[in-house]
């Protein structure tokens, strides 16, 4: 599995903000760094097919050699994690995970229990997400994304809301799972520490190595 951006550009009012031409190999983490407002989050929104109307994107995106540039969001199979966990507040922890798991998958209960086990949250299926700690919620959000069997992972500063200890743990937790599943990862961040901990290439939004 690999994610390839071919002459990918995002412009606003004909001013180019993002210009990338790169390939992310399976298990590799590509970090995109830049100050806030440079277009990092817009890039991820464009990749999942939710570009705000004020922007225009050109170029093509390939996942495993298939073009996904014009597919609707739900058909792209790109997992995304935001700064906030965005667990659905009306669903229990287990139901949130079930939402991610494709409906054709058998043994749903076992799969959800395994995912919770992997996240160190055994037996928390029935819990209300709002009763979990920030770190626990972040792990549930990651497991929900992984259960959907994405073919690449996009990270929109997912560690910035966590305190220093949790942050290192969570980074490790996320990158390890992405590597073991062979997922290409694109991380956008304004934090050099996050980018360096990812251990991959670091580029600016214009494609310059940092």
């Amino acid at each position: 599995m690999s994610l390839r951006l071919e002459a990918y550009e995002i412009a606003k009012d004909s001013a180019v903000m993002v210009a990338l031409d790169c390939e992310v190999a399976p298990g590799e983490v590509l970090s995109i760094m830049g100050p806030s407002g440079c277009g990092k989050s817009t890039l991820l929104a464009a990749l999942i097919g939710a570009l705000p109307p004020a922007f225009r994107a050109t170029g093509r995106v390939f996942l495993d050699g298939h073009e996904i540039t014009h597919l609707p969001t739900h058909a792209r199979r790109l997992g995304i994690l935001f700064q906030d966990d965005i667990l659905f507040p009306h669903l229990s922890v287990g139901a949130n995970l079930g939402f991610g798991l494709p409906s054709k998958v058998p043994d749903r209960k076992e799969r959800i229990a395994e995912a919770l086990h992997e996240a160190g949250l055994e037996g928390m299926e029935a819990r209300d997400p709002s009763t979990l700690s920030g770190g626990q919620r972040a792990r549930v959000a990651l497991m929900r994304t992984l259960l959907a069997e994405p073919r690449a992972l996009l990270l929109d500063e997912p560690f910035s809301r966590l305190d220093a200890d949790r942050r290192a743990q969570m980074r490790h937790f996320v990158f390890e799972r992405a590597r073991s599943r062979g997922l290409p990862v694109v991380l956008v961040t304004h934090d050099r520490e996050d980018a360096e901990a990812a251990g991959g290439r670091i580029l600016s939004v214009r494609g310059a190595p940092l």
Partner: peptide
């Protein structure tokens, strides 16, 4: 409503 909830759901494969 936080539109990111919708994006999360769509990126998990949910149709509109």
């Amino acid at each position: 409503w936080d539109a990111r909830a919708g994006l999360s759901a769509a990126s998990l494969g949910a149709r509109p």
